[in-house]
Design a protein around this nucleic acid. Structure first.
Lengths: 192, 192
DNA sequence: AGAGTTAGGAACCGAATGGTACAAAACACA
DNA sequence: TGTGTTTTGTACCATTCGGTTCCTAACTCT
């Protein structure tokens, strides 16, 4: 019916997410964004509304992909007990950091600090945070923890998780990560 | 010998710190900065070099005041045992968050995520982070913990601390904070 | 092939960015 | 009361910001 798109919108959105993830909302100028998405201005404003809506879409994408993946992992009995899944998740983060390749941190966590994107973004971010919390909660419940006890522990784990991601982004978690995991073990009741 | 300053440089620097703390480096435009500091452009560039150097000075100020205060508290035997001091510090943060007045978080933590200010800023931030870690470390050593065990625990505490500050800034720590403190207690070996 | 529709790209927009130049103003000292 | 020195404020600078306009290119369908 008309001229077809020369770019994959979803692919472009992923590049946009990567940039926002790395440098945040304000620091990602429109021209940088266009460069990363491999698109010209015309296509950009034809396909999306504006910069902010792309940011919101990037948040959604992170939610649909990374957060969903994480929550699914935390809730997958095939990955071991709830405690084992949680520790495995932290181990994954620790590996990322130790391989010096991270330096990005968690987009959710970064965006929470960034405070950009208006109230819409804030609502999305809070929802994502709750999802993550519930992911930990479920993992703990799978181990038979009582509901309210699991809730409190899940929140502690979530806090440690965000803290570790911050330190990872800051490039400070070489041995920090492994030390942190041992402390998370304590939260999980692994006294030895 | 010449015309005296009409403003207090230290006072202006504090206002600058408050703004950078709140909105970060990029989002704090020069005009906003001038407004907050109650200074015109001429005075600004006469008294300081440029925006970035003011940012670095703001980081130094945070280090000299907030971090120093925190580290001193953690190392003050008059405030109770090391564990008590650490828990009291977390309690302070929790109070801040619950009174809904926080929404700022920790400047150090925010700046670590922000990644602005160049390598100079990064060096300062890493040094500040180490100071905080050492503050926890000393508190734990005061309780007689073995050195390496104290180091690992201190890092876990630091991680939880940053995580809590992120959640506080995000406005998510109403009951999160109290739950988090209980988990920190577990790190400290308070099994009950 | 022709008509209709949409994507692409470049020119352009006003506003705001961080920073500079310079003249007037306010003081200290002689 | 000058004179010298420094602050202050304003006007100005080029550049970049996010966003719009509009014409042409590319495609589908009849």
């Amino acid at each position: 019916m008309a001229r077809p798109r020369e770019f994959d919108a979803d692919e472009a959105l992923e590049k946009a997410m990567d940039l926002f993830w790395d440098v945040g909302y304000d620091e990602a100028s429109l021209s940088e964004l266009l460069g990363a998405m491999a698109i010209t201005k015309g296509s950009f404003y034809k396909a999306f509304q504006d910069k902010q809506s792309v940011y919101l879409a990037a948040l959604d994408r992170y939610n649909d992909q990374v957060i969903s993946n994480t929550v699914a992992f935390l809730g997958d009995p095939a990955e071991g007990t709830g405690r084992e899944r949680i520790l495995a998740l932290f181990g994954r983060v620790a590996d990322l950091a130790q391989k010096e390749g991270d330096r990005l941190g968690c987009f959710l966590c970064n965006a929470l600090v960034d405070k950009a994107g208006g109230p819409e973004a804030e609502a999305k971010l809070q929802a994502m945070t709750r999802r993550l919390e519930n992911g930990f909660h479920r993992a703990l419940q799978d181990d038979g923890l009582e509901v309210t006890e699991a809730r409190g522990t899940a929140r502690g784990i979530l806090t440690a998780y965000f803290g570790l991601r911050v330190l990872g982004r800051a490039g400070l978690s070489d041995d920090m990560a492994t030390d942190c995991i041992r402390q998370v073990e304590k939260m999980l009741g692994r006294v030895h």
